[in-house]
Design a protein around this nucleic acid. Sequence first.
DNA 1: GCCCCCGGTGAGCTATTGCCCATCGTTTGG
DNA 2: CCAAACGATGGGCAATAGCTCACCGGGGGC
Lengths: 316, 316
Amino acid sequence: MAAENEKSRLDDAARAGWLYFIAGHTQDEIAKMLQVSRASAQRLVSLCLAERLITFRLEHPIAACMELAARLKERFDLAHCEVVPADPAAPQATAGIAERCANLLDATLRSETPVIVALGTGRAVRAAVERVTPIDRPNHQIVSLVGNISADGSASFYDTVGRLADRTGARHYPMPLPFLMSSEDERNKMVRIEPIAKVKAIAAKADMRLVGIGQMDQKAQVHVDGFVTRDELFEMMRLGAIGEITGWAYDAKGRLLKAGTNKRLTSIPPDVPAKTSTIGAAVGTAKVPAIAAALNGRLINGLITDEATARAILER
Amino acid sequence: MAAENEKSRLDDAARAGWLYFIAGHTQDEIAKMLQVSRASAQRLVSLCLAERLITFRLEHPIAACMELAARLKERFDLAHCEVVPADPAAPQATAGIAERCANLLDATLRSETPVIVALGTGRAVRAAVERVTPIDRPNHQIVSLVGNISADGSASFYDTVGRLADRTGARHYPMPLPFLMSSEDERNKMVRIEPIAKVKAIAAKADMRLVGIGQMDQKAQVHVDGFVTRDELFEMMRLGAIGEITGWAYDAKGRLLKAGTNKRLTSIPPDVPAKTSTIGAAVGTAKVPAIAAALNGRLINGLITDEATARAILER
DNA sequence: GCCCCCGGTGAGCTATTGCCCATCGTTTGG
DNA sequence: CCAAACGATGGGCAATAGCTCACCGGGGGC
């Protein structure tokens, strides 16, 4: 008897679900049709959902992305995660994620109350600031997490902080330092000087950090851009470096290395685990180990990537 | 540009749909996530539905039934239609539809304001009244559409009206007449006599009619039950009879025949097209042509049947 | 046999949703 | 280049849905 009632109840639940989701009736109408109170109709619809009698199928490339983002968020306990559809024409294209990063910056900067945004390295970050919608927010602050003088002493390679400040009217704080100093002592000396300490203090209060993630292999961006020499890169790789964020190299478990270039690096060191909103932006198969390590080591608590990369991270 | 905006809008719609139906967020939350007003989030969810980006799938036998019922309702412009799952163990079983008919009767009889229910022939109708939940409604009226004296002059074959009245305390009006009279003249004379005219007048005001549908073939119920002879049956078949409702034979287009037993029949003739609620109840492959004809001829405006029969009717 | 517990029920309150409308930006035609 | 027309937007309101609560009735344990 119990089984029969159960079955009949599920039948009714299915009926209610059909009438609600497929036929598009209101629960009131369904209640009248099935001769029950509206409350019961609502329960039947709930039951239909709870028992998974009805399933939703979203036939759209976005669906897979949402699914991947949800899984990444869950797996790595992220505060924020976005996965954009992979562009089959250009698998490494940063266009997609740059757009999302820009959107995120837009959202953050739209705030009327003053916010502090910190920017790291990375092509996606550079592309993102270019796409930010101009808006007048003179009370915001934009701060750089990395030195903007390259190894050869030349001018800033790419002034993300300045560009973003242009678009918002915000005060901006580039870090007038070389990427690497010549020794640990010198680095320690430099980061204590007044203007740098001030930048550091502001960065520490940042409401949002947007950083790129670099892999530490022969094509490492820090080397390609001329910030570290081939020898320095190889040394870090020997020491176990698998990725870097704002130049800070970390190993496969996401632990910051305490040797090599990390000792001479002027960049503001990341919080471990990441505080407030620290969003990593990166795409590409080559970056998968670096991204995964950063996630595991909690160097970041947010991620913006593409479908292919997201899938690869989850399948590791 | 237009195409790109369009695409991006659909992407957002898909995102919104995913967040709403799959992740279970409210539209307010989605609005915040997508950085739009709640109204826009609502529009995106609507769009997702309208564009059929999302589909609902109900994995339950009931789903097919609901679908068939909706199609029958649409195709034949029915006021009411129910399709019950076919019982594979007993394809002709009336149990399923009887339960639904009983439910319908329950619903009608539950009314506090007086209602008039008219009953026709059919096993499903008989079974239905047996399943009606007892309820005290002395002001209701139950009226028979057919004579309850069989050809051999014996007592009522099965007193549906009386049974239903027992269960409700309603006044009941059986029709104290033989099913067939010996001639057209005699029939016309009988139906004018006071008690019969009164039954007829009540029946004309019925709020709901529940009738069986019989096929006119060698296994016709009217013959099996002994109401018409083999010769009479064959004559009607020659005249084109394909089905009958309360004994009234009709052809493949649902037109009442004006000859044969129809001229001697005492049953109250059906309204064409059916007025108020006239529900046919029938299952079985053999009855498909009869049911389809009744639907096409608008002899009924409601149908209760099973899945297999519904499918067969729609596939004709 | 009696009582407790569980699952179900409907009332009623609040959150959520759907939709209308005034407004505004954008596009198209003159 | 302007104006009209169209479409999208967000506020606001009425309808709808979700949920909590107190209550009821049946089934099993003591």
